[in-house]
């Protein structure tokens, strides 16, 4: 309650939160526990890659993995018969704000063993890229695109890394980052103007425009494609 008794205008002037400065307390680490068979196996097999493990919400096991080793660890978890996490339920990311690293979260489920595991990779803000797991699970395709769109994390080796929910030429950044204001960076009038002034060519991706024997892509359309979309 004490916060609310301060001068409200002071807070207005402070503006949105910062991604590069520490304002909130870091998330506390839970008690590490190796009761989960896959966690124990990972510790044994990848002693360098497994940073820590914890139990969350009572019985949910979380493993923190070195982001450089994500493909090896997840590949082991998928293909090894003793673990066999054949269903990649979800790929998402978490931004705590305050300059803390972004977390990429993989939710795994093994249909034959009926076991769940959560694997997290922490990416520092200055190095937001990680290898894609689309080679292991095809379900990662759209999920990684969504993380790329909303958080700006690049997935190396992804076959088709484009924005998926926001328009391709969205220029305001990555909405789910903590430094992104709720109502967007532009004014409503500017947002409306941008939305309505889209060229019809913005609605198609370059591969589509090549269908039907179209000669080659106009030069003006090229900058929209993959590499440039990252900080669009």
């Amino acid at each position: 309650m004490s916060d609310q008794q301060k001068n409200p205008f002071e807070i207005v002037e402070r503006g949105p939160a910062f991604s590069d400065r520490l304002e909130v307390a870091p998330p506390p680490a839970g008690g590490a526990e190796d009761a989960h068979p896959s966690v124990a196996a990972l510790r044994e097999r990848f002693p360098d890659a497994v940073r820590r493990a914890e139990v969350s919400a009572g019985d949910q096991h979380v493993v923190y993995v070195d982001p450089d080793a994500n493909l090896e660890v997840l590949g082991f978890l998928k293909t090894d018969d003793a673990h066999h996490y054949d269903l990649l339920v979800d790929v998402t990311a978490v931004d705590y704000g305050g300059g803390l690293p972004l977390q990429v979260v993989y939710q795994l489920w093994s249909i034959p063993h009926r076991r769940a595991l959560r694997v997290k990779c922490e990416l520092p803000l200055e190095r937001l890229h990680i290898r894609s797991v689309t080679g292991l699970w095809n379900s990662a395709n759209w999920l990684e695109r969504e993380v790329f769109d909303l958080f700006g994390i690049t997935f190396e080796g992804h076959p088709d890394l484009r924005r998926i929910l926001m328009p391709e030429n969205y220029a305001e950044g990555h909405p789910l980052r903590k430094d992104f204001p709720l109502r967007g960076r532009f004014s409503r009038a500017e947002q409306t103007r941008r939305a309505l002034s889209q060229d019809p060519k913005d609605y198609y991706i370059p591969e589509e425009l090549e269908v039907g024997g179209a000669p080659s892509l106009p030069e003006a359309l090229r900058p929209r494609t993959l590499e440039d979309g990252s900080e669009g």
Binding site: Q4, P8, I11, V24, P181, L182
Partner: peptide, 13 residues
């Protein structure tokens, strides 16, 4: 534990 009462007004944008 972050600041609880941050308000976004049009002027913030």
């Amino acid at each position: 534990r972050g600041p609880k009462d941050r308000v976004h007004r049009p002027a913030d944008r």
